[in-house]
């Protein structure tokens, strides 16, 4: 009985300690933002490895998600002779939900895991300590540029995902299934609101980007400096990011779209 209680207590203390360390790390990253802006070279390098290298997977998945949505939506909507609203359905689901969420999930898998592994390995091979020995602040030099790069990349990747999804959906809906081209774009423009749908989608992807890189960097920085430790941290990054994204998505949707 006491053993079980102690276990629960230990779990609670550990969770709070982790949260506290993550918050302190976040604070240190945020306060050294100015340094990065003065040396944009570091940021560009990270934008390349976090953003550019993720474009391909985002573009291909966005295209296919849009195509599947269109195909599936047509199947249901054609039963009610409402194929004209297919464009609205595809665009609304992509811009509001699927764009930010699937991008964040893919981002966690492609870029987040890479970030954690890189930082964890830097720690395991004592590169971070080495930097510190040379009086270089590793948070400032290594973590902050990566954080900022992820935060900037996410909304751009999500927009790319949605845009290509809509193009893919258009290809299937208008090109293959014979939905009217004018109805596709016209209804879409009439029903998708700039403020309500688009800006909220971008806000979502900003939040997801923030959370995903935060988790990835913290897991890397906090990993046990062994091969098993780094591999565990990488796994945790993907699992925690995915869960956080899905849970936050529910909360944000409930808050933003009534």
């Amino acid at each position: 009985m006491t053993e079980a209680l102690a276990k629960l207590g230990r779990f609670g203390i550990d969770s709070v300690r982790h949260l506290g360390r993550a918050s302190i790390l976040l604070l240190r990253i945020l306060t050294s933002m100015g340094e990065v802006l003065r040396r944009p070279r570091l940021l560009v390098e990270q934008l390349f490895s976090v953003g550019v290298l993720t474009v391909l997977i985002i573009a291909v998945s966005g295209m296919f998600v849009g195509m599947v949505l269109s195909l599936q939506g047509y199947y249901i909507l054609s039963q009610f002779a409402a194929e004209a609203t297919l464009g609205v359905m595809v665009a609304a689901s992509l811009v509001r939900e699927l764009g930010p969420v699937v991008t964040a999930l893919l981002f966690a898998g492609r870029a987040g895991s890479a970030l954690t592994a890189e930082i964890g390995l830097m720690k395991a091979t004592e590169q971070l300590s080495g930097l510190e020995m040379m009086a270089v602040n590793p948070v400032r030099r290594v973590l902050t540029p990566r954080f900022l790069a992820g935060f900037i990349s996410m909304p751009l990747l999500a927009a790319l995902f949605s845009a290509l999804g809509i193009v893919g959906g258009w290809f299937v809906g208008v090109g293959l299934l014979g939905v009217d081209d004018g109805a596709w774009w016209g209804q879409m423009q009439a029903r998708i609101d700039w403020n309500e749908d688009l800006v909220n989608g971008v806000i979502k992807s900003l939040v997801f980007g923030f959370v995903c890189v935060w988790i990835a960097i913290f897991q890397g920085y906090n990993s046990v400096p062994t091969s098993a430790g780094v591999s565990g941290a990488t796994t945790r990054t993907v699992v925690h990011s995915s869960l956080a994204v899905l849970a936050l998505d529910f909360a944000l949707t409930a808050l933003m779209f009534d």
Binding site: V44, V52, V55, V95, L160, I166, Q189, I192, D193, L198
Partner: peptide, 22 residues
């Protein structure tokens, strides 16, 4: 390449704003 990436991302946002939304 980073420049191209940023341009593509912003272009996608622009496309969503002008062509998809109202």
């Amino acid at each position: 390449l980073v420049g191209v990436f940023m341009a593509i991302g912003l272009l996608a946002l622009f496309f969503l704003a002008m062509k998809v939304s109202n």
